[in-house]
Design a protein around this nucleic acid. Structure first.
Ligand SMILES: Nc1nc2c(ncn2[C@H]2C[C@H](O)[C@@H](COP(=O)(O)OP(=O)(O)OP(=O)(O)O)O2)c(=O)[nH]1
Ligand SMILES: [Mg+2]
Ligand SMILES: [Mg+2]
Ligand SMILES: [Zn+2]
Length: 566
DNA sequence: GCCGTTTTCGGCCCGACTGTTTTCAGTCG
């Protein structure tokens, strides 16, 4: 399994970076990526062969890790890993696996005493060398020996069904104590992993010390690793580790949520809470000093405004990625509008002022091209004059950027009504069909794809030509059109005119799934129509669109710099 | 190294227990 191999390499890089003392966040990234890849349902090689760029869509995988995945798929390993393997002796990773010994102590032993294996560590501890190190003492030294001792006897991961038996036995034992109000198993066992590293038990009651004391009297305990007021760790006679956590009754839900994990899931939802100005810990959800009491797990989800997620899904593999529907305030500008230079009612200045009042950063003036005679379409010469005019207006008018543009007609054969020599001077080129609606499906599709492949086209306007209740969409293969749009990095318009609403919701959803950007354009022929954006937002929400799917949620600089050809 | 309703730079979850320490670092959950 290549995914497992990649996961292991990332895990090892993370472990070795801990010893070298690299950034804890970088280390977390490697470890998280290792988890994600290990749990990923598809072969990364298949994804790579289909479209390498899809790799960095995987949560926790960015440009750098994507590069390393590709490197490993191509060569079997990556340079970063090989270089660390050379630098860090394998014995150090063994030492770090010992309980109570992490990267800092491992490095200390290595730097001060040249210890690079568990055997050398054992002999150094026996000779009393460890206690001499700064920050170490007699107890730390004997802890080192104890963990080396117990390491051999420690159970590896246990099958879930065995752990379940033991957990249930512990729980029925715990229920016999009057101090215990509620008790449940948590951790990987509650998430139903095939194997578990330990058994995690959560109990609540008014007298936590009594609960801990009672637990430590459980008959099959071999020894107690640690014991505090709220939690204790013990090792059973069969070598299994059991962690007990104790909280008050009011906090049971928050604690169960914390203790069920996974760790990565906890971190992700805690980050979500942070963004909302909240803090999650095992005692509840906090807004400043105010505590939102969580007696049940559902209370935690409610407090952070998420639907309940079952334990079995809490692995941070995307289960918290709920859709954040587009909102009208996400729209940063207008990309489809007409002025009185063609068939619009208002001047460019009036359109710009209204856009400014709407709160927009930009408005593109996209008048018709010459073949639409009825609309007084602009030819090359008039369009050049309009570009000059907009240049002047941009100097005069503050607080709004007017983008130059055109809604250029797609001619019958798919060529455009304006030459490339002028199109390339424009900020926003929309290409639209206004004639020959009755071509065959093949012809119509080919026609539009040809327009899409023009290097200066940014958007395909009102892509199906429908007029609600008046004119059917023309026959066209939208899947092929969207594939082409994706390939050429062209956006598809959602025309917001309420008589058009073109594309419809199901096709918007398709575009989203295919990774095609949508441009919300009002096609305004007057200042009052800029408000049609709201109808577009309605449809976009029906199509499950989010901010990231929509072109005019970006600032205009990003829109203009988005390049065309791959 | 990742990531974006405030961000393309500057953040990154939060707390318990232990040993060594006069105030916290390391490790673990
Ligand atoms: N917030 C937070 N929770 C953690 C962290 N580490 C562990 N937890 C929580 C989530 C875990 O599921 C739970 C129990 O810890 P374990 O180490 O036993 O992990 P878990 O049971 O998930 O896996 P395991 O099969 O035991 O290796 O404690 C952490 O670093 N932060
Ligand atoms: Mg566990
Ligand atoms: Mg545990
Ligand atoms: Zn049009």
């Amino acid at each position: 399994m290549e995914n497992q191999k990649i996961a292991q390499i990332f895990q090892e890089i993370g472990d070795m970076l801990e010893i070298t003392g690299d950034s804890v966040f970088k280390i977390r990234s490697y470890h998280r990526a290792a988890q994600v890849v290990a749990n990923y349902p598809y072969h990364l090689r298949d994804i790579y062969e289909k479209d390498p760029k899809l790799l960095d869509k995987i949560p926790g995988i960015g440009k750098s890790l994507m590069g390393k995945i590709i490197e490993i798929l191509d060569t079997g390993d990556c340079k970063k890993h090989l270089q660390l393997v050379k630098q860090i002796k394998p014995g150090l990773l063994d030492i770090m696996k010992l309980r109570g010994i992490g990267p800092k102590k491992t490095k200390l032993f290595h730097d001060e005493l040249s210890i690079d294996s568990v055997a050398k560590l054992k002999s150094a501890a026996k000779r009393g060398l460890i206690r001499e190190l700064s920050g170490m003492g007699e107890k730390s030294e004997s802890e080192v020996l104890k963990s080396i001792e117990s390491y051999g006897r420690l159970k590896a991961r246990i099958p879930m069904y065995e752990a379940l038996d033991i957990a249930e036995e512990i729980i029925s034992y715990m229920k016999k104590s009057d101090a215990v109000s509620k008790v449940e198993y948590a951790g990987s066992l509650r998430r139903r992993l095939e194997t578990v590293g330990d058994v995690d038990i959560l109990a609540c009651g008014d007298k936590p010390e009594e609960i801990i004391k009672y637990f430590c009297d459980f008959p099959f305990i071999s020894h107690i690793e640690s014991r505090g007021n709220t939690k204790t760790t013990v090792i059973l006679e069969n070598g299994m580790q059991v962690d007990l956590r104790v909280v008050s009754k009011d906090d049971f839900g928050a604690a169960l949520y914390y203790f069920t994990g996974s760790k990565a899931h906890n971190i992700t939802t805690r980050k979500i809470a942070q963004k909302m100005g909240l803090k999650i810990n095992e005692y509840g959800v906090f807004k400043g000093n105010k505590k939102i009491i969580c007696r049940t797990e559902e209370d935690v989800f409610k407090a952070i405004n998420l639907p309940y997620i079952i334990p079995e899904m809490r692995e941070d593999t995307g289960e918290t990625d709920f859709i954040k529907p587009i909102e009208i305030s996400d729209i940063k500008g207008e990309l489809h509008s007409h002025s009185d230079w063609s068939d619009g009612e208002n001047t460019i200045t009036e359109m710009a002022e209204t856009a400014k009042k709407t709160g927009y950063e930009f408005i593109a003036i996209t008048d018709h091209s010459a073949s639409l005679k009825i609309a007084h379409g602009l030819d090359k010469t008039r369009l050049e004059a309009q570009i000059k005019e907009i240049e002047t207006l941009n100097k005069k008018i503050e607080g709004i950027k007017i983008l130059t543009g055109a809604e250029v007609d797609i001619l019958r054969d798919g060529s455009l009504d304006l030459p490339d020599s002028i199109l390339k001077k424009l900020d926003i080129v929309i290409a639209s069909v206004h004639t020959y609606f009755r071509l065959t499906r093949e012809e119509q599709t080919a026609r539009i794809i040809k327009a899409i492949s023009n290097p200066f086209v940014k958007i395909i306007g009102h892509p199906t030509g429908k007029l609600i209740g008046m004119r059917e969409a023309y026959d066209i293969d939208l899947v092929k059109v969207m594939e082409a749009a994706k390939k050429h990095n062209v956006a598809i318009e959602l025309n917001c005119n309420p008589k058009r609403l073109d594309l419809s919701a199901e096709h918007l959803r398709m575009a989203k799934d295919m990774g095609v950007m949508i441009s919300l354009g009002t096609d305004s022929h007057g200042t009052s129509q800029l408000s049609y954006i709201k109808y577009g937002i309605f449809m976009a929400r029906r199509g499950w669109l989010e901010k990231k799917n929509i072109l005019n949620t970006m600032d205009y600089a990003s829109i203009l710099s988005s390049k065309h050809h791959e």
